[in-house]
Amino acid sequence: MRAFTYERAASVESAAKSAAANDKAKFIAGGTNLLDLMKLEIETPTHLIDVNGLGLDTIEPTSDGRLRIGAMVRNTDLASNETVRRDYGLLSRALVAGASGQLRNKATTAGNLLQRTRCPYFYDTNQPCNKRQPGSGCSALGGFSRQHAVLGSSEACIATYPGDMAIAMRALDAVVETVKPEGATRSIPIAEFHRLPGDTPQIETALEAGEIITAVTLPAPIGGQHIYRKVRDRASYAFALVSVAAVIQPDGSGRVAVGGVAHKPWRVEAAEAELPKGAKAAASILLADARPTDQNRFKVDLVERTLGAVLREARG
């Protein structure tokens, strides 16, 4: 790990200012992704701004019926929250499907959203990788690509966004709230928060330099059956090959977001209109633009089958 200076931020505003003043500064929350990457010198900040003490750790209803989740709420606390379990069960389910009990005790809402890809070449500093070292090439193209994206990828990068929580948040139409260094606030719909790789795979989100996440807000509850189904190589403590986050209404209509298939949570509203007709109809629209590699072609079938299992579960 490279040496760095360390600061406990005193306020959201000072944290954002401090981050904007140094382009090698990083916020640190739970540290479970950042420190992992710093040990491998994939991330090399020279200054860490600890944002844990800013009071961003509460979950509160808003006066208009939404739920505001502080950026530093731990994954365990979010999954255990009574309102979330009752009205946004999908989010609880996605959270407890991720990582381990120990990690969820540290991992935060903001940090989880911003976790970086698990592409093995991104992690191997001896290999070319456009995300880690822009312009060096993509080792996954023509390499081992079993875990990689089948949708929305580019010639520069075929990595997936690896997280579970954000897939549920995408289905729930969450909004990411931020504060910029000059003090302005922004509300970024989750659909626009994560980016496709294009020719700048190193830029993963809509966040600007120094911009700090303060909360994630969920719209008023929409009812329905909340199902998160994650398919992985072992029963627990593994990233998704494919995951499906769904809210299914009694009349068969609903919402579906898919994880493990793209550089961002994947949702196609036109596919949702087909849900009452079944998984095949919905999946054919959801996956219409799929461009799998020979090694990850299985994901196309897996999405359809997982969606089928979700719809069967919803019918009871």
């Binding site: 360390y6 640190i28 739970g30 540290g31 479970t32 420190l35 992992d36 860490l48 600890d50 844990n52 009990g101 120990q102 990690l103 005790n105 540290k106």
Partner: peptide, 11 residues
């Protein structure tokens, strides 16, 4: 419970 390898002492 937490993983002590993924957290800094100064935190």
């Amino acid at each position: 419970r937490v993983n002590s390898c993924l957290t800094l002492a100064v935190m």
